[in-house]
Simulated assay, not measured.
Amino acid sequence: MSADSDAPRRATVRTEHADADVIAASVRPDNTESMRTRVDGDAVVTTIERDDTGGLRATTDDYVVNVTVAEEVVQLADRHKTPNP
């Protein structure tokens, strides 16, 4: 086996949102030690690093579901905001 086969696998997911800070704050509590989330302008950028491809795939899939749900909740909340008097 080559040394490369032992190297960690890494994926970076970048998604753009009107409320990137809110989305990032929503997904961070579910991050594991192998995940880092930051805001870059209107984007949430999360880097995931795992020891194997299967683990990377599973973690990335879970993260994408979490981002999708967070975005849907933010959109729903925005539709139901009441104007300040």
Rank of each mutant, 00 (worst) to 15 (best):
M1Q: 12
M1L: 13
M1K: 04
M1G: 15
S2G: 14
A3F: 13
A3K: 15
D4H: 12
S5C: 10
S5T: 11
D6T: 13
D6H: 09
D6M: 11
A7V: 02
A7N: 03
A7H: 02
P8F: 14
P8D: 15
P8L: 15
R9Q: 15
R9W: 11
R10H: 06
R10V: 13
A11Y: 02
A11D: 02
A11E: 01
A11R: 01
T12E: 15
T12C: 10
V13K: 09
R14G: 00
R14I: 04
T15F: 05
T15Y: 03
T15P: 01
T15N: 07
E16V: 04
E16N: 10
E16Q: 10
A18L: 09
A18I: 03
D19Q: 09
A20F: 09
A20T: 03
D21A: 15
V22G: 14
I23N: 02
A25D: 14
A25E: 11
A25Y: 03
S26K: 05
S26F: 09
S26T: 14
V27G: 13
V27N: 11
R28H: 08
R28T: 14
P29C: 05
D30H: 11
D30F: 12
D30N: 08
N31A: 04
N31Q: 01
N31D: 07
T32P: 01
T32G: 14
T32M: 11
E33M: 04
S34L: 08
S34C: 07
S34A: 12
M35S: 09
R36V: 12
R36D: 07
R36L: 08
R36Q: 05
R36I: 10
T37H: 05
R38K: 09
V39C: 04
V39N: 07
V39G: 09
V39K: 12
D40W: 00
D42W: 08
V44L: 09
V44P: 09
V44S: 03
T46I: 07
T46A: 05
T47S: 08
I48V: 15
I48Q: 03
E49Q: 07
E49H: 01
E49D: 04
E49L: 02
E49N: 01
R50K: 11
D51S: 14
D51Y: 07
T53N: 07
T53E: 10
G54Y: 03
G55C: 05
G55M: 11
L56H: 04
L56I: 01
R57N: 15
R57H: 15
R57P: 10
R57C: 15
A58I: 01
A58Q: 06
T60R: 12
T60M: 04
T60D: 02
V64Q: 04
V64K: 10
V64P: 01
V65D: 09
N66G: 05
N66W: 06
N66Q: 09
N66A: 13
N66H: 10
V67H: 04
T68D: 10
T68S: 14
T68A: 13
A70K: 00
A70D: 08
E72F: 04
E72S: 05
V73T: 05
V73Y: 06
V74L: 11
Q75K: 10
L76F: 10
D78L: 08
D78Y: 02
D78V: 05
R79D: 13
R79C: 02
R79W: 09
H80Q: 08
T82R: 13
P83S: 12
P83Y: 12
P83T: 08
N84V: 09
N84G: 07
N84L: 13
N84Y: 03
P85D: 08
